[in-house]
Amino acid sequence: MRLRELSVPGALEITPEQLRDPRGAFMEWYRFDLLAEAVGHPLRLAQGNLSVSGRGVVRGIHFADVPPGQAKYVSCVRGAVLDAVVDLRVGSPTFGTWELVRLDEVERKCLYVCEGLGHGFCALTDGAALSYICSETYNPGGEHGVHPLDPDLGIAWPVDEPRLSAKDAVAPSLARALATGLLPDYTACQEYTASLRLS
């Protein structure tokens, strides 16, 4: 298993080693100890989600209030998606930056997204199935979004006409989310992460 830090601090790309033979393949797609060593604390497994999307669907950019936030460990179990991680932490040296990672059923890469970062994806195939385990359960009052097509954010989605949910279609721009105090604070995120190392 190889772990690579993305250009957005707090996000990791995980590539499992696949053992193949005539029967098929086997891999460790999640290792508690290796991830804890890389991020400095264990990932609390509080909820598991599975979303299935048609080609051209864009979901996100979603994030949660910190504390407690919601860290995610994401994998694509069928088809392919282009996953986006966005730094939404006000005061972060990389605020507003993003990186795209292809997740698919061939390489079986996974993505770790820490608390305070935004997450979204674009389905590249019909029936693309994304599985993600989360550090906290869903909290409707503490869950938010930034519009995935915000031109100031400028995410290079590979579709001409992205299909959005009604909720994502009316999400605020990054500038509006910043002006209204909706975005997580970088220092608060750092302090929360430090508290997880002590517990």
Rank of each mutant, 00 (worst) to 15 (best):
I14T: 06
I14L: 15
I14G: 10
Q18L: 15
L19V: 13
L19T: 14
D21Y: 02
G24P: 04
G24H: 06
G24K: 10
A25K: 09
A25L: 13
F26A: 04
M27E: 09
M27R: 08
E28C: 03
E28M: 12
F32P: 04
L34C: 02
L34T: 12
L35S: 07
E37K: 09
E37I: 07
V39E: 14
V39D: 10
G40S: 07
G40M: 12
R44T: 12
L45Q: 14
Q47C: 03
Q47N: 06
S51R: 02
V52A: 14
G54M: 12
G54Q: 15
R55D: 05
R55K: 14
R55Q: 13
V58C: 09
V58F: 10
V58A: 09
R59M: 12
G60E: 13
G60C: 07
H62M: 11
H62V: 06
A64M: 11
D65Q: 07
P67D: 04
G69S: 09
Q70L: 02
Q70S: 10
A71N: 00
K72E: 00
Y73W: 14
Y73F: 12
Y73L: 01
C76P: 01
C76I: 07
V77A: 13
V77E: 00
A80G: 05
V81W: 14
L82K: 13
L82W: 09
V85C: 12
V86S: 02
D87A: 08
L88W: 12
L88G: 05
R89M: 02
R89S: 07
R89P: 03
V90F: 05
S92T: 05
T94P: 02
G96C: 06
T97W: 08
T97M: 08
W98Q: 04
E99Y: 12
E99L: 08
L100P: 03
V101N: 08
V101E: 05
V101Q: 07
R102E: 01
L103W: 11
E105Q: 14
E105M: 08
E105Y: 03
E105S: 12
E107L: 13
R108N: 10
K109P: 02
C110H: 06
C110Y: 02
Y112C: 03
C114G: 15
C114F: 01
E115Q: 00
G118Q: 02
H119D: 00
H119N: 04
F121P: 01
F121D: 07
